[in-house]
Structure formats: structure tokens, C-alpha cells
Design a protein around this nucleic acid. Structure first.
Length: 172
DNA sequence: CCCTGATTCGC
DNA sequence: GCGAATCAGG
């Protein structure tokens, strides 16, 4: 059977992924059929990527891709991808704005691939939900993307190590 | 050697 | 869109 990514499958995937489960764990949790590669691939396709470190935070610094096939002329940069957003990834919604968070309608089940994945509440709680609005940039809507990708150089922590978990913690 | 995620490419 | 293959790091 082909692993057709249904709503429930994607929902579980997103949920587990945001919870901090590793790709292999999610893949196994899904029952099989899907490999960790498939999970990761789907996760990336959905637009998710980068959250709390599972166990071994493999910080990728440089990926020159692999010339497996006879790539003739890959001299074209094609597209800068979404690395720009990734750079400003650390989403510290500690104190954004007087943004009226009234969503909470989008759950892991109803959450669409292009819905704003702004975390509302505890990911492990049943009350957990997402913004749900139309994701404009990355995985967030316009408003949330604005505060999410804010180059905000909050002092206090010189290193500025902002983890999603910590962000969620503050947000809860 | 185990694990992790990330990326690219072929289907 | 999906997933294997591969890469790179811890």
C-alpha cells in the first residue's frame, strides 16, 4: 500500500513532530510503511522544520548536496530557498505585541499545511491549538510571521539561544 | 556505530 | 507529492 498522507496521518505527524518526537520515532509510531526519510520529507514538504532538539541536536552547518547523479550544469543557484527565514528562525514570542490571540481553532487535526502554525498552549495538552490563519510566510501568518521573524536581538542572553520549547514555554 | 535532521533528485 | 539515497554532524 502506498503511504498516502491523509489528514489524520499528517495531523499525527505534525503533532508528534511539534511535540519533539524524532523522525524515526514518528515513522515507527505511524505503524511502519513510512520510513524516517518519508517522515522527514513530508515534514519538510509541509513547511515544518526545525523545532526542539530531540536527543541529538544535529546542527547542520553546511550541506553541499550530493552529486549522486550526473548533474551536468548545476551552476544555477536555482533559488535561495527559505534559508532566509531559517536564519531568523528562533521564534521568541516572549513579548510580541498586544496581539489578540483568539484563534485556538486550528488543532493538529484541522490544521492545514498552509495554516499558521503559531503554537497556542501546551503542545502536549488537548487544549493545544494553532493560529490557523493563512500562512503567508513560512509556517506563520502575516502577523505572527512578523513577530516570529523579527530580528529582535533581545539582550539578556548573549548567545541568544532560543529554542522552540523555550519559546512555547514563555508563550504558555 | 549509534543516532539525528537536511537536502537533492528521480519517480 | 512522495520517498530513497546521500550528506553532514553529534
Amino acid at each position: 500500500m502506498t503511504a498516502g498522507w491523509t489528514e489524520d496521518r499528517v495531523g499525527a505527524l505534525t503533532k508528534l513532530w511539534l511535540e519533539g518526537q524524532s523522525a524515526s520515532q514518528i515513522a515507527k509510531a505511524l505503524g511502519g510503511g513510512v520510513t524516517r526519510n518519508a517522515v522527514i520529507g513530508k515534514v519538510h514538504r509541509l513547511g515544518l522544520s526545525g523545532r526542539a532538539a530531540p536527543s541529538q541536536p544535529a546542527r547542520t552547518t553546511y550541506r553541499p548536496t550530493r552529486p549522486r547523479a550526473a548533474a551536468p550544469a548545476p551552476a544555477q543557484p536555482s533559488a535561495p530557498r527559505r534559508i532566509e527565514a531559517a536564519q531568523s528562525r528562533p521564534v521568541p514570542p516572549t513579548r510580541p505585541d498586544p496581539t489578540p490571540e483568539m484563534p485556538g481553532t486550528a488543532t493538529v487535526m484541522t490544521l492545514g499545511a498552509h495554516m499558521c502554525k503559531w503554537p497556542i498552549g501546551d503542545p502536549s495538552s488537548t487544549e493545544f491549538s494553532f493560529c490557523g490563519r493563512r500562512a503567508s510566510e513560512g509556517v506563520y501568518c502575516v502577523e505572527h510571521a512578523r513577530v516570529a521573524y523579527q530580528p529582535q536581538v533581545k539582550r539578556g542572553s548573549k548567545d541568544g539561544s532560543t529554542d522552540l520549547a523555550r519559546s512555547l514555554r514563555r508563550y504558555i
